[in-house]
Amino acid sequence: MKIRIKFRKYGVMKFIGHLDTMRYFQKCIRRAGIDIAYSEGFSPHQIMSFAAPLGVGITSDGEYLDIEVNSTKSSAEELQSLNAVMAEGVEVVSYRSLKDTEKKAMSIVAAADYELRIRDGYEPPKVDYEAAFREFFDGPKEVFITKKTKKSEKTIDLKKLVYGFRIFMEQDRPVFYLKVCTGSTDNLKPETVLEAFYAFLGEKLDPFCIQIHRIDVYGMQDGALVSLGEMGERIE
């Protein structure tokens, strides 16, 4: 049976990278006594896959992993056993069963949304954000930026890969909301968009000045973005 687990990552756990988070969950599953299925072969491993790796330093309210189990208790019971063995900084918030035909989260990830905040001690650029936003993103039909990778440079159109972009003010400081294309092809990091916005303002973005928080991850279902957490069903 396929199970999708949603969890939050906060506090100092943001410093634990993707691979270590995977190892962390393998041990949690054992401590919690989840009846997980193992692969065949000489060195069997838990059947487990993560939806979209989260970068070091980023917090999240919407992380997902899919596992395969031989048997399961109710969602409420399994949530309780999992949360009883979590370290501070990880909280499991949902445990749902998926249909056998349902695809793995990692193969259907299409988007993720984020909140980017300026950290305390750093000053945001002093501009009219509403006007700047209209001019940089909302108005133009195309917003080309150059994306540098390790091997090459690529020109991409933000209008095609940014699905949502808002700037709102909180205590006179801007908060950037971004919903961006995520997945193996055309993956766009939210900070890349912010960097381009800063460049448009004639400023250079200090990567240390923002705290990125992932809100949720979405898959493509019948041509629409659906939260990975809304798929499947609660086990009563």
Partner: peptide, 16 residues
Amino acid sequence: DKILMSVEKPARYIGG
């Protein structure tokens, strides 16, 4: 955060 993000393996120093 700035220091933790700039050193190798910040998990060495956070405990928990």
